[in-house]
Design a protein around this nucleic acid. Sequence first.
RNA 1: GCGGGAGUAGCUCAGUGGUAGAGCUCCACGUUGCCAACGUGGUUGUCGCGAGUUCGACCCUCGUCUCCCGCUCCA
Length: 483
Amino acid sequence: MDIKSIEKIVSLSKRRGFIFQSSEIYGGLASTWDYGPLGVEMKNNIKNLWWQDIVTSRRNVVGMDSAILMHPEVWEASGHVENFHDPLVDNKNTKKRYRLDHLLSQQKDTVLETLLSFCTGTDIQFKDKSEKLSFITNTLSEMNLKEFVLTKSKVIDPYSGNVGDWTNPRQFNLMLKTSLGAVADSSDDTYLRPETAQGIFVNFNNVVTTARQKLPFGIAQLGKAFRNEITTGNFLFRTREFEQMEMEYFIYPEDAKEQLEYWSQERLNWYKKIGVREGKLRLRPHDKDELAHYSTACYDIEYEFPFGWSELEGIADRGTYDLDQHNKYAKKKQIYFDQVNNQHIVPTVIESSAGVDRTFLTCLVDAYREEEVKGEQRIVLKLSPKVAPITCAVFPLVNKNGLPEISENIFTEIQTEFSAFFDQGGSIGRRYRRQDEAGTPYGITIDHQTLEDNTVTLRDRDTMEQIRIPADQALSELRKRLQ
RNA sequence: GCGGGAGUAGCUCAGUGGUAGAGCUCCACGUUGCCAACGUGGUUGUCGCGAGUUCGACCCUCGUCUCCCGCUCCA
């Protein structure tokens, strides 16, 4: 696939009604996208395939659907208020931007001491350098600085090796704030959830007692999450509003390693099952310094996009972090009573956190092909039939001799079970090609022979070959192929 | 946030300081009848948005928004 491939995907998405830019008639809103008629079908298919695989087909995983808005203290407890922001500084000379803590970790001690003198409460003793660094970072970020202390302290820009002309640190909070209630008062500030996981953790007890689950068991949830990303881009890949498919699997602590491996494989296999080419997928363990504030081990499932290997999903060992935190902050405790060992424990959590939109983009990119057929270019989406927005298109070969009427009847029958599309406009070749671009795996054509022996042709999108089957077996044939 | 490229019909793009075009698509009718066939007719644009210069701006200037690529960033 060439370098313009993402543009081609964007163009096809719009042309066929997969994805439109949000608020397009007003000039668009950065990195927000709307799903069109084909897009929403395909997105629903992906979500249903996930739900089927994670919840429906498993005895010990249950689903739920929590609210997007949650009590502000949830985000205090989860660590997001403290950790989910980046203090950034710019060097006006080199135009480089750094995270303050990353930048300071590369500075000499004398520079740090100078910076420390600008902070209040300098008599604090620090255990080690990293504690000192985070103190300086946090203090400087929160101070309302009037002078440019980084420049005064002679902070070096690693890019140039010289003292930079630094802006003061600014906090970029990655959580989107909103106000509840009629009056916008700071006491009503709350956040749009940056992950769906917390909705599961705060309902842990509710689910345990009502679903009568015993360790190990999982709680799954599908829904929107919001992050005020500083840098967005790559079409659907990084957006501020996105949909997550998350599952928290609660286990005995000693099983953590084994379960992390198990779920990593399960999840990797799921992408293969929905038709993503195996060679474009990989499982990558996180380095220690990549780990999130809650995690002790993590795998990424990555796909090789035109813009490089990028994360589709993280499978993380969150330990007991989240439940512990809520137990510290909330009045009601989230604790599991282990009937086997007759004791109260806080279970360890293995989390699978996948992005719906990223999976959607993966499917599109992975399926996109440009082929040459009789000297003409054919653009085709070789989507898995389970993922494709339209399962089957129905065509009368000609618009006379009663063929449209017969076709309508077959279409109506197929529509009861599958997403179907009826098309009698233009030549038959044109209609096939339209469906190729939409990724429709099957086409049923009603021709003159149908009038004689009641058979129809079934066309395969990928091979473009046709077989003849009895009209009354069309539905069962599709059923067979979709299994 | 920086640098580069781009924004004109649904798509791909041409265009000129004097109120806009092509190909494809799409729709209708006719014809044909299995892989973007043909004929006739037809729909569609505040030329991304806002200012400025000008008698007059799609075109020049400034600002701004959006997309793509590369940086930076991405617990």
